[in-house]
Design a protein around this nucleic acid. Structure first.
Lengths: 178, 178
DNA sequence: CCCAATGTAAAACGATCACTTTACCCATGC
DNA sequence: GCATGGGTAAAGTGATCGTTTTACATTGGG
């Protein structure tokens, strides 16, 4: 495996499991099986590594969440949690641990969340045949909620989010008479 | 002001703004205006301080979220964010930064989330006159989603969650004929 | 009146932090 | 046939980490 890929992948795992600040560079180089000199040649700094991890995760996330309907969206989330565990959104965690003051990290998070919202917009159009900002916002909130509630409620959180999303889609499809 | 109260209150602010691990004890003692010896007499350790901060926050949170209807619930969240800013759930952040391996912190988070779920159960009963686990779960997810989405979407996230919750309450009040 | 409690200031603890440097190894390619 | 690029190991950088210690001030109650 490519050395940079291995570095970023092991860093992602350690950051996710133990936190960013709490994970030292020694532990990181040892787990990745590379020297610290090589690490700094590749990513420049710890912040650079964090940003690289986030950008790689964003790519991987959107490769998985590629479908165009509600079920596929929450199925993807369920698969993700089954594979890697649920410890909250890594982008928000990185942003929080750095106090929002590291530009590369803040930007990575902003990009990720913006893309997520776009994907949900597309799903809404595929589901009800037109744009609906209120519905998209609600699904985003359910997705975000499931991401974080899954840390303490497990997979049931994803089920609940999927069901609620379906109900909201139904009311959006056939708006109540008044 | 009582010294312990001042300590925990300033610690809460610093932890929230800059992260737990990134906030050193020196910075903490200086901001609180106390010596490190006094700090350790009061809370024993940094983990002890973190747990104390979380437990105090839980008390404060439930004092604010004391109402028994949907609007009051999300109004409380909006007021909270206006007062203190939105940087994600501090309980989840503490749990994540410590890798979930500090018992006092994991327990503080578990208690907090359990109480939140109970409060929402009560709100559901007050709104529709009976228990409804699916509805309560959905509202919890919207609340959790708003808490985290507000970090990057601002107060609009709370509005969206409130509207979605109202729609779900409506469908639960008058279940669709089939 | 003084003892105990509670606070301060400041230094020291060893460990660990992110990061750099020094010195060396070993392929590949002109 | 040797320079060069990319890697290693390991020591060292000064700073900062959480925590403890030493020595001293203040104050309220028996």
């Amino acid at each position: 495996m490519d050395i940079r890929t291995r570095l970023i992948s092991t860093a992602e795992q350690l950051f996710d499991r133990y936190g960013f600040t709490a994970t030292g560079m020694d532990r990181l180089t040892q787990a990745a099986g590379i020297s610290s000199r090589t690490l700094y040649k590749h990513v420049g700094s710890k912040n650079g590594l964090m940003a690289a991890v986030l950008n790689e995760r964003d790519r991987r996330f959107h490769r998985l969440v590629g479908a165009d309907n509600i079920d596929a969206l929450f199925d993807a989330l369920e698969i993700w949690f089954a594979r890697e565990g649920a410890r909250g959104c890594l982008f928000l965690r990185a942003w929080g641990e750095t106090g929002g003051s590291v530009p590369e990290i803040a930007e990575a998070m902003a990009r990720h969340k913006q893309r997520l919202r776009q994907r949900i917009d597309e799903i809404v159009v595929a589901e009800i045949g037109r744009r609906d900002d209120e519905l998209a916002e609600a699904i985003l909130l359910l997705f975000e909620g499931a991401t974080h509630a899954a840390t303490y409620r497990g997979g049931a959180a994803v089920d609940g989010a999927r069901r609620a999303a379906h109900r909201l889609v139904e009311t959006a499809r056939a708006p109540r008479r008044r």
